[in-house]
């Protein structure tokens, strides 16, 4: 990433903005934001990855725009202004996906549009971009998008591996000869309920490792 090359701009404080959301302050497992779309697109790795990148781009750039405009936005109508900025970004992403990766765009169906209402974006705009300078806000957006993407990739990895026996469409289990030992694909993991349960388990693991996060 080009961020790492420009060392002076990336002070320790800014780096923290980028890495905190990956673990201690993860948007999904800790802040409980943006779960809506996180689960529906995780049946296969590829759409999950595309979704993660799209969200990262939208959070990053809408944070940047709102942070640059923060002194000119009247407080009372800020939600509408934020929504318009987010919607513009999402329209750009949507048109881009339709043009270059049409099959993935079809798989994601309404969930690209639903990035608009992804609470991570609104949450970060409200909590961070409205009060900080553009550059840290941009990093904060990218960091949170990445934290969201991380969970998406983990969940979809397990769902695709256990549900269809593939990774990125490559039949791993078949090549390893697992099926000949009597193993069968677990169709349950492809169905919606398992996504919730897998996220629940991820939260369990995450919180057992970091006791500070345990709810009283």
């Amino acid at each position: 990433m080009s961020n790492q090359e420009k060392e002076p701009i990336l002070s320790a404080k800014n780096l923290k903005l980028l890495t905190e959301p990956l673990g201690r302050n993860n948007p999904i497992t800790v802040q409980v934001l943006g779960i809506c779309s996180a689960l529906a697109v995780t049946v296969k790795l590829k759409p999950a990855l595309v979704m993660a990148l799209s969200v990262m781009i939208v959070t990053g750039f809408s944070n940047l725009v709102i942070a640059s405009l923060r002194k000119f936005i009247p407080d009372r109508i800020r939600i509408i202004v934020q929504l318009v900025v987010i919607a513009t970004m999402v329209i750009l992403v949507d048109q881009f996906l339709k043009a270059y990766v049409f099959d993935v765009s079809k798989q994601l169906s309404v969930f690209v549009g639903l990035i608009i209402t992804n609470c991570i974006i609104m949450g970060r705009l409200e909590a961070f971009a409205m009060a900080n300078k553009p550059w840290p806000s941009f990093l904060d957006g990218i960091g949170n998008g990445a934290g969201y993407g991380l969970i998406l990739v983990i969940v979809s990895f397990f769902r695709e591996l256990l549900g269809s026996g593939t990774i990125f469409g490559y039949p791993v289990l078949e090549k390893l000869g697992i099926y000949s030992t009597g193993y069968e694909n677990n169709g349950m993991t492809i169905l919606p309920p398992m996504a919730l349960i897998i996220v629940g388990l991820i939260i369990w693991v995450h919180r057992s490792r970091d006791k500070n996060l345990v709810e009283k």
């Binding site: 629940g200 369990w204 006791k211 996060l213």
Partner: peptide, 23 residues
């Protein structure tokens, strides 16, 4: 409920179980 699962974690799993019922 086990401590790390309290709150959010168990709610997720419950929702999953309810979703199975709705299936």
């Amino acid at each position: 409920v086990p401590d790390p699962l309290k709150g959010l974690g168990i709610t997720f799993i419950l929702t999953g179980l309810m979703a199975i019922a709705f299936m």
